[in-house]
Design a binder for these strands. Structure first.
Lengths: 107, 107
DNA sequence: CTTACATGTAAGTCATGACTGACAGGTGCC
DNA sequence: GGCACCTGTCAGTCATGACTTACATGTAAG
């Protein structure tokens, strides 16, 4: 994991609203409108947060057709586990340097 | 750990510059001006980042007098370790709710 | 055909965090 | 005194993230 991925993850989780989104999805998947109602949040705003979370790999969204033909966009949590300490930070920056110095594994 | 503390921690670490600060301090403590030079960052800016890190409990600063009487503000890393997953998030939000509902442990 | 519910996005506002430059002060050294 | 260091903070700019309102689309049910 490089620093870009690490930053995406940390800055995604490091926001009060997104913390609530994660908590709400912990019980199981939900579609966007329903989730917006539960969190009392406007849908466009929720979209942004879900975008952020999805880019960080914390949630995945899937558009589905319900039995009665309605389109519903379901989001569910991706299991994640990160041990955050000094070593993690150093490793991420280290990986950046390695990638920058040697973009390809073997010449 | 409640959500406020969790957010402080995550948003503190979740920034490229502060990642570099942490990495630089990993080798040992440094005083502000020296740290600013190494990171090629203006001192006022560095102060802000150090503030943020200190409030999150990731670093501690101590003003010391060198042998020749110069005042130096040394910063050093505080060992930290956080396991970040869904359970952590839920626990933090849970703690908020508990504190809000029952501010005192026993009546 | 209107109501109700869903997705998706564009446009614009607003607050905040990130950053700069300039200044105040203090000490030691030549 | 003047230079070379340090600490600390204020005032201001700038970019970005967070947020709202409004609209376009589609389907199903009454």
């Amino acid at each position: 994991m490089n620093s870009e991925e690490l930053l995406a993850l940390l800055s995604a989780v490091g926001h009060a609203q997104r913390l609530r989104v994660i908590a709400e999805l912990a019980d199981g998947r939900l579609y966007v409108s329903e989730l917006a109602r539960r969190l009392e949040m406007s849908r466009p705003l929720l979209y942004m947060h879900l975008d952020r979370l999805e880019k960080a790999g914390l949630v995945v969204g899937r558009l589905e057709l319900s039995e009665d033909g309605k389109a519903l966009k379901y989001f569910e949590l991706t299991p994640f586990e990160l041990k955050l300490n000094v070593a993690t930070v150093l490793a991420a920056l280290h990986e950046d340097a390695a990638a920058g110095a040697a973009p390809d594994e073997r010449p």
